[in-house]
């Protein structure tokens, strides 16, 4: 049984609303094109797509543009898109609906930014596609290690060997990492690649 703090992702479903913002990374682009097949006619006339393609995502650009969204943005990373996203949310009104598709790291970070802007996580449509790599917060030094695929993992900041728990914080958009050999630092458990 997975832990109850672990987010549950669904399948993007059209919502009633005045405006729609869809955000995807390279893994999530196909979720948006799948979603478009069940969206009502004219849906994309009041929609913006933010596509954060990363190094190898350019292949999806044409398919997303073909949906004819009112606005289309292509950016290389969440960090790069952040100023645009923050301004868009600050100027938006109730009636804006948010959809996020892609890796767990992308979904977590967009949900976190949306929450600050006044959209609760329960109101965000999410769909997970792609890698299961985790963002892990070290409970000891508070640093976040990105793209963790192993159990245990080494904290990129303080170097402690961390047990990656299923316990998840929306506020940090990260799983919790706790020192795995605190009772006996000489015990070094084997490392397994499990978050793929």
């Amino acid at each position: 049984m997975t832990m109850l703090s672990r987010p549950v992702y669904g399948v993007l479903t059209p919502q009633t609303g005045k405006n729609h913002l869809l955000i995807a990374d390279a893994d999530g682009a196909s979720a948006i094109t799948d979603f478009a097949k069940k969206a009502p006619p004219g849906f994309f006339a009041s929609a913006e797509i933010m596509y954060l393609d990363g190094p190898d995502g350019a292949k999806n650009v044409q398919a997303l543009k073909a949906l004819s969204p009112a606005r289309f943005y292509q950016g290389p990373s969440i960090a790069a898109a952040l100023p645009r996203l923050r301004q868009l949310l600050a100027e938006s009104h109730m009636g804006l609906r948010l959809y996020v598709a892609g890796t767990e790291g992308l979904i977590g970070q967009i949900v976190q930014i949306a929450n600050e802007a006044g959209i609760e996580y329960t109101a965000v449509q999410t769909e997970h596609r792609g890698s299961l790599a985790r963002r892990v917060q070290c409970v000891h030094c508070k640093g976040i290690t990105e793209n963790v695929t192993t159990q245990p993992c080494t904290c990129a900041h303080c170097g402690l060997l961390l047990l990656v728990r299923d316990h998840y914080s929306r506020r940090y958009a990260a799983f919790q990492g706790v020192c795995i050999n605190a009772e006996d630092p000489t015990e070094i458990p084997p490392t397994e690649e499990i978050f793929r």
Binding site: H93, M94, G95, A117, G118
Partner: peptide, 9 residues
């Protein structure tokens, strides 16, 4: 009235 409310209302 509903259309002009800021996010977070």
């Amino acid at each position: 009235v509903l259309a002009t409310q800021p996010l977070g209302t």
